[in-house]
């Protein structure tokens, strides 16, 4: 059961990862396009320029969850490296419950009013010709932190599985994934 949950999270994470990767590429092309339009065609669209940071925001906000499952967040590892996989898993479980979840919950609930205020007054860009629906991008804050909270449970399950010795060893998830597939 727990193994199934872990696999589900892994699959989901790959979907998010692919989507965000595309969003990032769109952002890069967006910036490049804006440069060319301004320089070669003397034609800037403020909406297009704002789209740049909208895409950027989506990448960074939702990417936090993808990085969590894929173990891409930085640790200070001089002690951590010497711990056994079980001890590492325990640190991750305790850390997620006491460190990650409270922060994510605080930001999630703190941002609800912020988004609602923006929605109520139908906030738009303050720049001439900018993007409308400012509350959509502000709404990404509670959405992404909800995803982070949801992902945190997957991360806990992943580490419980290590504790239960349900996985052979704690190998990097991406490798794990490809190993499984190559079988």
């Amino acid at each position: 059961m727990l193994i199934e949950i872990e696999k589900f999270y892994r699959r989901l994470n790959r979907v998010w990862g692919k989507m965000l990767s595309v969003v990032f590429l769109l952002m890069a092309v967006n910036v490049f396009f804006d440069v060319i339009m301004r320089y070669s065609f003397h034609n800037s669209s403020v909406a297009m320029q704002e789209l740049e940071w909208h895409l950027f925001s989506i990448v960074i906000l939702f990417g936090v969850s993808v990085s969590l499952i894929d173990e891409a967040h930085v640790r200070v590892d001089f002690l951590y490296d010497r711990f056994s996989p079980r001890k590492k898993a325990l640190i991750n479980i305790v850390g997620t419950v006491f460190f990650l979840l409270p922060l994510a919950l605080l930001i999630l609930f703190g941002s609800l009013d912020f988004v609602q205020d923006s929605y109520k007054i139908k906030e738009i860009s303050e720049n001439p010709g900018g993007l409308p629906y400012r509350y959509l991008i502000k709404g990404m804050i509670p959405l992404s932190f909800s995803l982070l909270i949801f992902t945190a449970f997957g991360y806990i399950v992943q580490n419980i599985n290590i504790l239960r010795n349900a996985r052979p060893q704690n190998i990097a998830p991406q490798q794990h994934e490809t190993l499984e597939e190559s079988k």
Binding site: L20, L25, S67
Partner: peptide, 25 residues
Amino acid sequence: VVEESGLETVKVTAMVFAILIGATA
């Protein structure tokens, strides 16, 4: 290659962003 690079970029950027959030708190 493009997609893998994009994915890696996303993860590293999110890592940086998460530190910025922690640091700002």
